[in-house]
């Protein structure tokens, strides 16, 4: 960016035609300048849509609530509260636990499906992928409600089990619990796991698998030494794509979680709504963001280490 603006200010004094020609020549010569030019619309939106709001959020998080209004002196009091009061830490830990389990479950359940399409489907692969992402064609809210119907006190599972005679009273733990949230999240985000997993598996050159077999690997060794490490980018992408948004999710826990299934997202929502403590909400959002960044980094480091070990 700096380079482009520099060259512009230098050439702006010349005739407009000369300026155009020089800019063209400059762009042709400098790959960096061309890259920034291509990125500039996105960069603009990123700046306006992410960087600016983030700064606003950061500033608000350093305000404090004074009755019905905000004290705009900058202080870290909210951060101290978030650190010291156990409720915040507990909710944060539960959010990570729930969305972590949901992520692992989703990736583990979607991997075989993506594997099957990548290696054993030879015709109409697109159709299979579209069928797998079919649940995504309905609204997120509708899918959450569907699970409410399935898991409910008089829902599909309970009435089915009691009709068969396996249970006398409906199973209460199905709905309004962390497990209900995990099941729903795992189903709702499946497409986000299948697609990156499929892409990374599909890219694996089949002759590499044959070479591993030829060099003495049975199916299990071959999977662990070739398929799994080579599909690691897909696993990492899928994990991030699910873990990051689900940690902050508040619809599913609000509708299916009950008191034990509430997550940090619900608390943030309440801060910006009923409690009317925007500074605390902003603080919690930033704390969540930092934690996700730290966990993502740790996850990346661990997978790199594991990959080295496998090799």
């Amino acid at each position: 960016m700096a380079e482009t603006s520099l060259s512009k200010s230098r050439t702006a004094r010349g005739a407009p035609r000369a300026f155009g020609a020089r800019l063209t020549r400059y762009l042709r010569r400098s790959e960096t300048a061309r890259g920034y030019l291509l990125m500039s619309p996105t960069l603009l939106i990123m700046t306006i849509g992410i960087v600016v709001p983030f700064i606003i959020l950061l500033v608000i998080s350093m305000w404090t609530r004074q009755g019905f209004s905000f004290d705009t002196t900058l202080t870290l009091a909210n951060y101290a509260r978030a650190w010291n009061e156990p409720i915040y830490g507990a909710l944060l830990a539960r959010s990570f636990w729930i969305s972590g389990v949901a992520t692992v479950a989703t990736v583990a359940l979607c991997y075989p499906m993506a594997y099957y399409v990548a290696f054993h489907v030879h015709r109409n692969k697109m159709m299979w992928l579209i069928l797998m992402t079919l649940p995504f064609w309905t609204s997120y809210l509708l899918r959450v409600f569907a699970w409410k119907v399935i898991l409910g006190y008089e829902g599909v599972i309970n009435s089915g089990l009691s009709a068969v005679g396996l249970i006398d009273a409906p199973l209460a733990f199905l709905l309004y619990s962390p497990s209900a949230v995990i099941i729903t999240l795992a189903h709702a985000w499946a497409a986000f796991a299948i697609l990156p997993l499929y892409v990374s598996l599909e890219k694996i050159d089949k002759s590499l698998l044959e070479a591993a077999t030829d060099l003495g690997d049975g199916p299990v060794a071959r999977f662990l030494r070739i398929t799994l490490p080579l599909s690691m980018p897909g696993i990492i992408a899928a994990s991030f794509l699910i873990f990051i948004p689900t940690t902050g999710d508040y619809i599913t826990p609000a509708l299916l979680g009950g008191p034990d299934g509430a997550m940090i997202g619900n608390l943030i929502q309440v801060q910006f709504g009923a409690v009317n403590n925007w500074p605390m909400g902003a603080t919690l959002s930033i704390v969540l963001m930092l934690w996700i960044a730290a966990l993502a980094l740790a996850f990346l480091l661990v997978t790199c280490k594991v990959q080295e070990r496998i090799a």
């Binding site: 002759s207 044959e210 070479a211 030829d214 060099l215 690997d217 049975g218 080579l230 090799a311």
Partner: peptide
């Protein structure tokens, strides 16, 4: 005899060098 137990080894046309190693 499955391929991974045969006393033969192969050099593939594409060489099939493992890219992650």
């Amino acid at each position: 005899v499955p391929p991974h137990r045969r006393p033969v080894n192969m050099v593939f046309q594409s060489y099939a060098i493992f890219p992650h190693l």
